[in-house]
Nucleic acid binder design. Structure first.
Lengths: 110, 110
DNA sequence: TTATTATAATGTAATATTACAATAAAGATA
DNA sequence: TATCTTTATTGTAATATTACATTATAATAA
């Protein structure tokens, strides 16, 4: 097959997995770091910063856009990216709560 | 190509991505939840709980083992899985700190 | 208008992932 | 010993991901 059976899992499991999946590539970690540090960060800057080709960066950006973590401001021919910090914080809590719940479950057992 | 260029990223970026990548599948989220809740959780129990085939569960378990998050206790023909809560907590902090750092960077900009 | 610049879209090759049937291995039980 | 149970391994098909060359698109600059 090769296709994930999302339908057999609940929304929480699918959403948790989706967020972490998007973060699950070093290029995307690097891209988020770079955008967070630089005020006017465009595609070309990320190309220079990472050493990856422009279409590859563009592709990773659209992966990150899948969870709506990027805001973009069109300024002439440039597109400057920024992070939706509201949503980032929501995702931080979602993932952290997941870890905590697992931890609590483990401790309740013994 | 199709092969991630890990060598162009630093250890922190690769490690952060590796942890999140392992969490980036609903079956593995489900498996971790189930193991955390059940004292003597073996492979067959996960097969029943998820509805996935036994080799599929076995495969997902070995993905989770890649980041050493599973401890196993051989009891006769059974292998009971448990979560390394020490490491889980370390990973929780790693991922949460990543989110926080990004957040702080964003706020320092403006 | 004709470049130039920036990014997205398309196409494609290589590799990875997901899922599972079939089989193997290892321990328990009759 | 033979059988059953549990899990890992192997093999394989379908799909997804990664990376990039090429091309398209859209805005600016000459």
């Amino acid at each position: 097959m090769g296709i994930t059976k999302n339908h057999i899992f609940d929304d929480y499991q699918n959403q948790t997995a989706l967020i972490t999946k998007v973060l699950g590539h070093p290029a995307r970690i690097s891209i988020l770091q770079h955008i967070s540090k630089n005020e006017y960060c465009n595609c070309n800057e990320l190309v220079k910063a990472t050493g990856l080709a422009q279409p590859t960066i563009s592709q990773h950006l659209s992966e990150i856009k899948k969870i709506k973590l990027l805001k973009q401001k069109n300024q002439g021919k440039n597109i400057f990216y920024a992070i939706d910090t509201e949503l980032l914080n929501q995702y931080r809590r979602t993932i952290n709560d997941f870890f905590v719940k697992i931890q609590v479950n483990c401790q309740s057992k013994s």
